[in-house]
Nucleic acid binder design. Structure first.
Lengths: 222, 222
DNA sequence: TCTTTTTCTGACCGTATGGTCAGGTTCAGG
DNA sequence: CCTGAACCTGACCATACGGTCAGAAAAAGA
């Protein structure tokens, strides 16, 4: 009977038998995931803590328990993306030549665009607005990585393994083309008349690799 | 004497001997220009009418005289960009073949990225957030334009003037690569150690054209 | 069981923002 | 010179937002 009274709230137990640490991690992950979505869809300025809280299924005040400020939460989201992004960079390492190395890098970045489109959008938004949060990453980690890859490409060119192209502009083209499928995914879907199928994604990968590899004088492995 | 009193304001005459229409146009242009900059730098949500007003040198209330709401102002900014963007599309028309047509299109789009980086950023931001304002453009004008160009490319392929590549993905690559120099200009400048010089821009154009034209099986005119 | 620490949250606050409006100013047309 | 329309703006308002906090609730430790 007393259960039937309207005012009684169910008192949902969010984490029944988990340790402190596990609960914390679960909540932080839920918040970060929700934040990534909201930041991607609305931008930093358009995102609200309330919306993120609702999407994560937590009261707003709880967000501020885990992340002191909106900026801190945003920073964590961006850093998370940057790490994923850097991992893909390894695809280019230890490759015998451009066909293998650049081909694998394109594949890896296309996969990321497909799997983490929101992350890519947040990154794009951050850079477009002058990288107020990750400027130091650009100047240190990214710069070093870029210079290292440019050196590799230059070596490949010197060894006659590919056509002599400007390494930096080649990298920009790789980034632009692969990330376009995430950042401009909405436009592509509109023109495509719906979400990309598995076959569509495969065709995209093949097309990108075909043009770029041929473009740098390397026969596409097909 | 009375002039010397501190309280006297200079009463700057903003438009001395202009017609009503000219004044209106000048003010609207100033507002649109300021708005483009602010929207590009801060996104829609992060932009404030006060900031736009300050940058345009007008009181905030005056903005609302010319543009009823923030949304309306934003819409005008986006539409303006879309028109510029479409104009460049003509560079691809009436070309004898892909070398000429696509080469000219790349040149035109690179010029736009250099000249209107803010416009490109606003466009990118709009699309990334699901195109809430220009969805209809995507579905009508852009779609028609895209299908027209795809047909042209297919014809070129059928005529043996270029390698058989997926036309849509080629277009995406063209958009991505050229717009990257505007949207990710900050990242490029950071890696470059400063703004791109004339020579840098020329190198960028040359690199992009070289890779893509060779990539579609067309000898670069260079 | 009692105490301490961590976790959680409703209610609240100051500020900044988009937008309004009454009243003033300027201008074109007569 | 007069008048009505167009133009301009300081002051104001309601709202929504990021952030705070006191204190409840739960878990861990003793």
């Amino acid at each position: 009977m007393d259960d039937a009274v309207g005012g009684e709230r169910p008192k949902i137990r969010r984490n029944t038998s988990a340790t402190r640490a596990a609960t914390r991690k679960a909540n932080e992950d839920a918040i970060l995931k929700a934040a990534e979505t909201v930041f991607a869809e609305a931008g930093f300025g358009g995102a609200t803590m309330q919306l993120i809280a609702d999407m994560a299924g937590l009261p707003k005040a709880n967000l501020h328990y885990y992340f002191a400020t909106k900026e801190e939460l945003y920073r964590k989201v961006v850093e998370r993306i940057f790490k994923i992004w850097l991992k893909a960079a390894n695809a280019m390492d230890d490759a015998a030549g451009p066909a293998e190395g650049i081909g694998a890098y394109i594949d890896a970045k296309m996969e990321i665009s497909r799997k983490y489109p929101n992350g890519s959008k947040v990154w794009a938004s951050e850079v477009m607005h002058g990288a107020p949060v990750i400027q130091d990453y650009l100047e240190t980690t990214l710069r070093e990585w870029t210079e290292g890859r440019c050196a590799v490409i230059r070596r490949w060119i010197a060894e006659g393994k590919m056509a002599p192209v400007d390494p930096a502009h080649l990298l920009y083209m790789l980034w632009a083309t692969t990330q376009h499928y995430a950042d401009f995914g909405h436009q592509i879907e509109t023109l495509n008349g719906g979400p990309l199928s598995n076959a569509d994604w495969a065709a995209a990968k093949t097309s990108v690799k075909a043009i770029i590899l041929r473009g740098i004088g390397v026969p596409p492995p097909n």
